[in-house]
Design a protein around this nucleic acid. Structure first.
Lengths: 151, 151
DNA sequence: CTAAATATCTTAGCAACAAAGATAAATGAG
DNA sequence: CTCATTTATCTTTGTTGCTAAGATATTTAG
């Protein structure tokens, strides 16, 4: 029955999300970071340098919490603080990308290889299907979040 | 180029996981729960009644933390404590499934509908592809976690 | 029947957070 | 130009939820 199959894949998508979180936390712990620190450290790899204020609005943390976050990263030599030249109130946080990579890369290496292999095992059309699913599912989740946030 | 496409879908899978976490946290906050409490509350919907010890090993929390977790749930009338008849040291935690559903259901309703619609929009073969991807990706993530946990 | 093991709870200490206020720098009204 | 306001970050205080260690109650084993 088709409905059963839809239900099964729905559960799998839940489980996928849940397992990602678990792995993420395991990686974090192995790297000597808390789960949230690991999450936010990824922002630097994606976005490069950020100001404390930008990080605060990106993370949804208060500015005070961001100060602590940066302190912990700085203590581990993963980022450096620097005042902006154009506006000396601003604190620019400069990630040491190679240090961050050196910390995380080895932990993800195995995962990355296997993932690449998995994706390579699908045909172009299949990849297209998976991509479409992800795009639309992400859209739905974002809609749900913003609807709830509006309440 | 094929490599670009593989890279794109890889990034999307990351983003999918990240967006799931965000939505999960938003739902939690809207329901007046912390992110972790929401996560663990889901265990009761899945597994039904559990003992405190089972919950501790499922969650990886210490027994002390589980005591606090149950206290918070009990205060919100989402679960009840009861001593096991066969072994009176054990505390059976009986979830009030309808109370939990009443709390979470409305928040997920929109998401559930849209997800069902999304899945329904794929052909049987496409569903099969997505399912295969999930199954194998979950497998890979679990392997990665257990490899790291062994260190 | 007592010792050890088991299941949960309690206590003490710690880490990370929010909220509010302090500090320092930039902007704008007159 | 100057002083009040705004902006960006940091500091302080109190709360929450965690771990680790130990207390309590019950079961199991010798």
């Amino acid at each position: 029955m088709r409905a059963d199959e839809l239900n099964r894949v729905r559960k799998l998508s839940q489980q996928f999300a849940y397992t990602s979180i678990q792995m993420h936390e395991t990686v974090a712990r192995t790297a000597g970071l808390s789960g949230t620190d690991h999450k936010y450290l990824g922002f630097f790899l994606e976005k490069g340098r950020l100001t404390a204020g930008e990080l605060s609005s990106l993370t949804g943390l208060t500015t005070g919490a961001v100060t602590g976050l940066i302190d912990r990263f700085e203590k581990k030599n993963l980022v450096k603080r620097r005042f902006a030249e154009d506006d000396r109130r601003k604190v620019i946080i400069e990630p040491d990308t190679s240090a961050i990579m050196a910390l995380l890369e080895p932990l993800y290496k195995d995962f990355r290889n296997k993932s690449a292999q998995l994706f390579a095992s699908f045909s172009d059309e299949e990849i297209q299907t998976i991509e479409t699913y992800f795009l639309k599912a992400i859209e739905i989740m974002k809609e749900t979040s913003s609807t709830l946030n509006a309440k």
